[in-house]
Amino acid sequence: MIIFQGVTKMYEQGAVALRDVSFHLEKGGFAFLTGPSGAGKTTLLKMIYREERPSEGSVEVAGKESGRLAVGQVQRLRRRMGIVFQDGRLIASRDVFENVTFVLRAQGLAPRARKERALNVLRQVGLSHRMRSLPRQLSGGEQQRVAIARAVAADPDLLLADEPTGNLDREMSVEIMEIFRRIHGRGTTVLIATHDPFLLRKYRRRVLNLEGGCLTDKGVEITSGSDETP
């Protein structure tokens, strides 16, 4: 699903965000991307959804080299992904239901299908009773669950999450990880950037460790079903 080959990302000021990163994440795989703050986790995720291009090397997503795609192709590729941002990026002026249906609308779904899909995912994340609430009326955990609902609403092939539990307590983090686990169970490839050692210990999954822009550990591909610590 994702292939990084010798990827280096250098910014104009000379700062190196990623250095010669190579790894391969299978279709249907589940991996954590970890490392200290500033290690390059967000940059790596941005390369997958082509918000950034590599300075050197190549990034292949779903069989396409993302650096060579035209704008329309990039948008098509992004429609196959669900992205959970560190800050949620919910639209403040729209309620929970609209935040979810908005993405489905952007993807061209008919109104009835949008409504059904949104209700379904909001039920999955336990927020069907907060549909008409605005983001500011929700707790941090609820906002993050809305962001997850939005990311999975379109039933993506690939789910990327950037520190989805960053600001949440342990109980809420586990709750959110359970949602990811369920989504992965449906065959979605999942890549989660986190530096929470608790989650890494609890969910024994493949770990890609980044330090100073270098991939120091590519982890081992673990098949689903053998992942969780009891």
Binding site: Q75, I91, F102, A154
Partner: peptide, 17 residues
Amino acid sequence: RDEIAVMWVVGAPRAFI
């Protein structure tokens, strides 16, 4: 701006934006 930024990253077609 926020809305449009989200539209871009979720892959909304250019015409839709």
